[in-house]
């Protein structure tokens, strides 16, 4: 099959960047979207042009590296699918496909489709963990966890930190990412001692990174390749308010 690509090209962070048109004549419906870009890049290298830079690694939908907006949707049109797992059989022969980087002030473009998502790491640094130094752990069965809590924690923990939620959000908010970690750790007994300090610090870091506020449009949950449910944001809000109350109590 043949596809026409409109790709965002930007040499470096300071470059203004623009959409450039390319044709790939020999694509196959069984190709993944990244393999399509591989083919394009081989074409470009042989033609003496600079290949399109894009982040990718595991190519099996779990590392969260791939990050592009395809025809206006982070990770493209398929539900619950990362770009690397999106296959061309979902497009038609002759389609024109627009490819842009994840757009957010907190995710500055490094080159072409590669953005810097270090802000997510810094949000985790602020408190997205349980302090359990190596060796300090009691037996794993010392604290049973009700299955429904464990399941909900897992559902939230499935976040791959790709940033599609931010890319989709009209406000550039990372609330779904934030809520997912708050819910994962807050749902477990091990996460209780730091529950209040965690949410307070992570929310502060989220804002400091320049992510916008949530307006509950739900775009994030639809774009999320791991189907993190929207209610983790409700959980985030609930925990944040509870933490403020607790702080007033102890102050």
């Amino acid at each position: 099959m043949k596809v026409h690509l409109k790709v965002w090209r930007q040499r470096s962070a300071g470059d203004p960047g623009k959409i450039v048109n390319y044709d790939v004549a020999d694509a196959s419906p069984d190709m993944s979207f990244l393999e399509l870009l591989d083919v394009l890049n081989e074409q470009l290298v042989l033609a003496g042009e600079d290949p399109v830079a894009f982040d990718h690694d595991c190519r099996e939908g779990i590392c969260g590296a791939c990050s592009m907006v395809i025809d206006g949707q982070p990770h493209g049109p398929e539900k619950a699918t990362t770009t690397c797992q999106l296959h061309l059989r979902h497009f038609r022969d002759g389609d024109t496909i627009t490819i842009e980087p994840f757009r957010a002030g907190a995710f500055p473009v490094i080159k072409d489709l590669v953005v810097d998502r270090g802000a997510f790491d810094r949000i985790i640094q602020a408190g997205g963990y349980i302090s359990a130094p190596t060796g300090a752990a009691p037996d794993a069965h010392a604290t049973p966890v009700p299955k429904d809590h464990a399941d909900r924690a897992f559902t939230a923990a499935a976040c791959i930190g790709c940033g599609a939620c931010v890319a989709a959000c009209p406000n550039g908010s990372a609330s779904l990412f934030l809520g997912a970690k708050i819910t994962h750790l807050g749902e477990l007994p091990q996460g209780q001692p730091e529950r209040d300090s965690r949410v307070t610090a992570m929310v502060a870091q989220h804002d400091a990174e320049g992510f916008g506020g949530c307006t509950n449009t739900g775009e994030c949950a639809v774009a999320c390749p791991k189907e993190i449910p929207l209610d983790v944001i409700s959980q985030l809000n609930r925990d944040y308010l509870a933490a403020r109350k607790a702080r007033r109590r102890s102050a």
Partner: peptide, 13 residues
């Protein structure tokens, strides 16, 4: 296993 559970790894239960 003890260490990972303490860290909040959501193993199947």
């Amino acid at each position: 296993i003890d260490q990972c559970v303490a860290q909040g790894v959501p193993f199947a239960r």
